[in-house]
Design a protein around this nucleic acid. Structure first.
Length: 757
DNA sequence: GACTCCGATCTTTTT
DNA sequence: GATCGGAGTC
């Protein structure tokens, strides 16, 4: 396979696949049905360019949708062509163009160390602006405003164009939000002043860069002779225009996509891109990959029977030569918790009967919040699992705090970072003082950082002294960043800022885990600096890397045998032997927010299609008749999508809690069953657990049962024995000796989840 | 300014 | 269930 000049990587490809690999010149569109080997074609196409056409990997640019997809693809190219693959330009639109923007930042009036605002930063900035203007925050909700601005940027509508556009004006006025344009303008100005770009700016500003600086555009047009875009159906207009500009000279642009799997319209993805593409490149070569190699016939046919309900698709018929396979299981549960138990027991059974591993299973759901019930059931069944996505590591408070320190040290104009850390740990600087600082900065037309450095000149008394100390601290950090590598500098910041100490002194279970998380972050930074191949080991370089990272590609190589839990969105591009799609209830999947238009509903249906086509051998669908939503119990109807699946592919419902053979149990049966189910829930001996305001927590009567010598189980530390109980004072504590080399821990009872055995 | 309690509000998906 | 902001208290 690695022999020079050998082309045996072409063997085993079907005709359209081979066509996609070897026809490397000119514009190409590959319409690739689910499971049709599109990643294989894409990687071999790159390999073919390097190997057979002697193209320098450095001049190939491949744009993917996620970081994970990029690194996966790089690995696969490497397995064919060897280390040459390392020189490929490969990554998400956001990561590739943020790199280019850093190199060319000065042309746009930005420093090259500009900060990237994540969604939280953007929303909180919007919130501040709305407040500063004295606007009604019920009307101008950060979410709504953010989405409006975001979609404008994704269509390359600048604030100036937005304000001058009568259609937007009318639209906003009729929505009672006439000030939208003003907020957009101020938001952009504040980002610029903070030397910050949000996610959309990375694309918007790249367009501006290429529009206003033809020399720069020319440089990259020369460099990137071959352009490949994966998941083309999920690109937005802004992304497409960047690609179009880059490919304008050589026209070697290959896009791969599947309109049936377009699931990101909510984020500005525009299916129109496919039509524009055909218009922009009349000489286009279109290749269709229609044979599915992944799934059994039942699964492929069921997926087709679902997607058939959508109107207006590209012509394509996905088929498979695989065998018929098992029928699709339908699991009907009375509650979300029971759904979890049924899924868990089904997995357990299948593992035993078919000699399968945990990693052969995936549980897919529509919303992250559904993971909870599944998680608990799997834990009880002793099945190892891993949740992908959800609240990512980098979104945890303690991590964001440290990162904000780093951000502020690197870029002291970063307003959002400043707001976060200026009173952390508590320095006695409240909202009042922060406002004063901002006002002073605006009055003298200088940056906030300049005010902080000369606090005595603008503020008085104790606050001035404290701010002075703060500025000195930051300056000392700045010095150490210059002199040390990322790990040393970050350790110093964690320590000298006082954050580490504060967490260390918090002996609650939560504090402990926060402390561990910070250590984990430091480990990640250590890994970063220990990487031999990396030339820039500064903290700034680490920050750039981390800003666009999601925890989807947090690979822990040592332990890989787990059941995967994730949303359908994050499952795109993956495959599993056995797949469970859970929570197939009306208003949940399809989501109630997507029932307003046909287009929305069709996107949900495509999402369902994506979920189904992840499965290779066995698919199980489940729904619950009662579910906790918004902390309230709600009765649910089965999803309309279930009815769209042709019955001939389905197994008659068999996994229900019913003991009797009756196939239409009365509602009261479920109600009764559900009450029992709930009872067993409350009998659990877990202490209620919330993240803050501990006084709000109650200690349920059963922790009063806790006695010295009892065997207990903790979700994180495992089994242990109570050796001491302190019931005096307000903070009741128990000292527990844990097995598995964790040792003795003192747990605050109001926090600890302890199960008595 | 810090801390506590209480009620209101929201949860679709992600770079 | 979790977070945020307001109100009241120290």
């Amino acid at each position: 396979m690695l022999e020079n000049g050998s082309e045996d990587y072409l063997s085993g490809l079907n005709p359209p696949q081979e066509e996609g690999v070897v026809n490397t010149e000119g514009p190409t569109m590959i319409i690739a049905g689910a499971g049709s080997g599109k990643t294989r074609v894409l990687t071999l196409r790159m390999a073919h360019l390097i190997r057979a056409k002697n193209v320098d990997p450095f001049s190939i640019l491949a744009l993917t949708f996620t970081n994970k997809a990029a690194s996966e693809m790089r690995k696969r190219v490497e397995s064919v062509v060897g280390t040459d693959a390392r020189n490929l330009w490969m990554g998400t639109f956001h990561s590739v163009f943020s790199r280019i923007l850093r190199a060319e930042a000065s042309k746009l009036g930005y420093p090259s160390n500009f900060t990237i605002y994540d969604t939280d930063d953007s929303k909180s900035l919007i919130k501040t602006i709305v407040k500063e203007y004295g606007l009604d925050d019920k009307l101008y909700k950060p979410n709504v405003v953010y989405n409006r601005i975001s979609s404008a940027k994704n269509r390359l509508v600048s604030w100036r164009e937005y304000i001058n556009n009568p259609i937007f004006k009318e639209d906003d006025a009729s929505n009672m939000k006439p000030e939208m344009g003003k907020i957009y303008k101020t938001y952009v100005e504040r980002c610029f002043k903070a030397d910050a770009m949000d996610f959309d700016d990375l694309l918007f500003n790249t367009n501006v860069l290429f529009r206003d600086h033809l020399d720069v555009l020319n440089k990259y047009q020369q460099r990137f002779q071959y352009l490949l875009i994966d998941e083309f159906q999920d690109t937005n207009v802004s992304q497409y225009l960047i690609a179009k500009k880059l490919a304008a000279v050589r026209r070697n642009i290959c896009v791969v996509g599947d309109d049936a799997q377009s699931i990101y319209a909510f984020r500005g993805a525009d299916i129109q891109n496919i039509l524009n593409y055909e218009k922009d490149y009349p000489e286009l070569r279109v290749i269709k990959l229609e044979q599915n190699y992944r799934s059994s016939q039942n699964i492929v046919n069921a997926a087709n029977s679902v997607i058939r309900n959508n109107k207006g698709q590209l012509e394509k018929s996905v088929w498979t030569a695989n065998n018929q396979g098992e029928l699709i299981d339908l699991i009907k549960a009375t509650s979300d918790n029971e759904e979890g138990r049924l899924v868990a027991s089904s997995i357990f059974e299948a593992k035993v009967n078919n000699q399968l591993k945990n990693s052969d299973f995936a549980i897919l759901y529509r919303t992250n919040s559904q993971s909870r019930a599944m998680e608990e059931a799997l834990r009880r069944a002793n099945l190892k699992y891993k949740i992908i996505g959800g609240l990512s590591f980098y979104q945890r408070k303690e991590i964001k705090d440290i990162i904000s320190y780093i951000r502020f040290v690197i870029n002291p104009n970063d307003e959002q970072a400043m707001r976060r850390i200026i009173n952390l740990p508590k320095r006695g600087i409240g909202p009042g003082s922060i406002e004063k600082i901002i006002v002073a900065a605006n009055e003298h037309n200088i940056s906030v950082w300049e005010v902080l450095q000369k606090a005595g000149g603008y503020l008085t008394g104790r606050v001035a002294t404290v701010l002075d100390q703060f500025a000195t601290l930051i300056k000392s950090f700045q010095l150490s960043v210059e002199k040390r590598d990322a790990f040393e500098a970050a350790s110093l910041i964690a320590k000298n800022s006082g954050l580490l100490k504060e967490l260390y002194e918090d002996k609650t279970v939560e504090g402990l885990s926060r402390y561990e998380n910070v250590q984990e972050l430091l480990n990640a930074i250590k890994e970063f600096t220990d990487d031999e191949g990396r030339e820039d080991k500064s903290l700034g370089a680490f920050l750039q890397e981390v800003a666009l990272l999601t925890d989807a590609d947090n690979q822990n190589s040592d332990d890989t045998d787990f059941i995967t839990l994730m949303t359908v969105h994050s499952a795109k591009g993956l495959e599993f032997k056995n797949v469970f799609i859970v929570g197939l209830e009306e208003d949940l999947f399809p989501s109630q927010m997507m029932l307003n238009s046909r287009a929305d509903l069709e996107e949900e249906r495509r999402l369902f299609y994506v979920a189904i086509t992840r499965a290779e051998n066995k698919l199980s669908l489940s729904y619950a008749l009662n579910r906790y939503r918004f902390g309230r119990l709600k009765t649910c109807e089965p999803s309309r999508f279930l009815e769209e699946i042709d019955n001939s592919f389905l197994n008659i419902p068999r996994r229900t809690s019913m003991k009797s053979g009756s196939d239409s149990p009365s509602q009261s049966y479920y109600a009764k069953n559900f009450v029992n189910n709930m009872k067993s829930q409350t009998n659990r001996r877990f202490v209620k657990h919330t993240s803050h305001s501990p006084s709000k927590n109650f200690v349920p009567s059963d922790t009063a049962d806790l006695e010295v010598g009892m065997k207990v189980e903790h979700p994180k530390f495992g089994f242990g024995k109570v050796i001491e109980i302190d019931r005096d004072g307000t903070n009741q504590k128990a000292k527990v000796d844990f097995e598995n080399n964790v040792g003795e821990k003192t747990l605050l009872l109001s926090f600890a989840k302890l199960k008595i055995h």
